[in-house]
Amino acid sequence: MARVIVDVLPKAEILDPQGQAVARAMGRLGVTGVADVRQGKHFVLEVDDAVPDAELERIAGTLLANPVMEEWIVRRETGTGA
């Protein structure tokens, strides 16, 4: 088994009001220097080694993310195999 991480973020050109609200809250905490925040999702999948990268990409692009409004990164973590 391998651990696969899929990170999903709203596309840069799509307004992310949640990220903006987080950025404004940082200002209220006195944090400076954070120019922008985008809020997304982080999926952790336990995947059989036989599952090819193309299948992982299909899972991410057809279910975990909506390509109309989101972008994603698929990362297969090594060294976690059981």
Partner: peptide, 17 residues
């Protein structure tokens, strides 16, 4: 219907939250 691909575009969170 947008998620099913029958209609174009997507619906996202309201601008004012």
């Amino acid at each position: 219907l947008c998620e099913a691909g029958l209609l174009p575009g997507a619906l996202v969170r309201n601008a004012g939250l």
